[in-house]
Computed example of a mutant assay.
Amino acid sequence: MTCRVGLLWDTPLIFSRLIEDCGASCEAITPHMLATPFWRGRFVALIVPTGFANPTYSKLLPALRASSGRIERFVENGGRLLVFGAASTRQDAYDWLPIPVTYVHSYGPRAVRFTADSPYNSLISGYDLNAVECDGTFPSHGGETLAATPDGEALLISKEIGEGVILVTSVHEYPSREFLAEFSCADRETLF
């Protein structure tokens, strides 16, 4: 079993310490590394934190677009991709993903209801499901809704592509330790 995560961001994040505390090694991947065609890494999972499309917080979006083909191949070949909320009103914030995702930015606590049985529901294990901080919703997407508000607004979606999976969430909290320990580990790493 190998446990290895690439955390995509402009600078080191405290998030990496949580990942490592859950038993996985964590490598910071900057936008320059991500967009460089000759840079390669091997990971079980890649994580794109909240705010990736908001230029106030990050310059990651252009690099995600530049490497969209590599991201798709990574997932097809068995990689796992976790993408958080864009924290932006941009309509095209998720256009680098191989599935369509429409996002509406709106920060605040929301009641969460699981709509499908999935091991990925553990993303918010231990949180008060009546008031989970979220930064938006997904009114349309090309995946399966795993969690939504009582009104049916999607908050966690998944899509299996090839041998891997893409999870997109607007939950504005760190993933649970249980989720990170499971999501970050597999029998093999996938080349990015």
Score class of each variant (00 low, 15 high):
A66D: 12
S67F: 00
I71L: 15
A24M: 07
A111D: 12
G79K: 13
S58D: 00
G41K: 05
K59D: 03
R65P: 04
V101Y: 03
E72D: 15
Y57V: 06
P31L: 13
T115E: 11
N77G: 13
V75Y: 12
E76S: 13
G85M: 04
V48H: 08
A111E: 15
L97K: 05
S106C: 13
E76F: 06
S106M: 11
N54Q: 06
G108S: 14
V83C: 05
G108P: 12
A53F: 06
V83Y: 01
A111H: 10
V101W: 03
L81C: 08
A24F: 11
S106H: 15
Y107H: 10
G51V: 11
V101A: 01
K59F: 01
P98C: 14
R80C: 01
Y103L: 02
S68E: 15
F84Y: 15
S88G: 03
G41M: 08
I71R: 08
T36W: 09
E27N: 04
A24Q: 11
R80N: 13
P31G: 10
L81F: 09
P31H: 05
F74R: 13
P62H: 06
S68Y: 03
S118R: 06
R40D: 13
T115S: 11
F38P: 03
R110W: 09
A66T: 00
A66I: 01
H105L: 09
G69V: 02
T102Q: 10
K59E: 01
F114R: 07
V75L: 07
F38R: 06
E72Y: 05
T36A: 12
V44E: 07
G41A: 11
F84E: 15
F74N: 13
G51Y: 01
S58R: 04
D92W: 10
R90P: 10
G79E: 10
G69Y: 08
P109W: 08
S118Q: 06
F84N: 14
Y94T: 02
L61N: 04
T89L: 11
I71W: 11
A28Y: 00
D95A: 09
A116F: 00
I47N: 07
P62F: 08
Y103G: 00
L46A: 12
V83I: 12
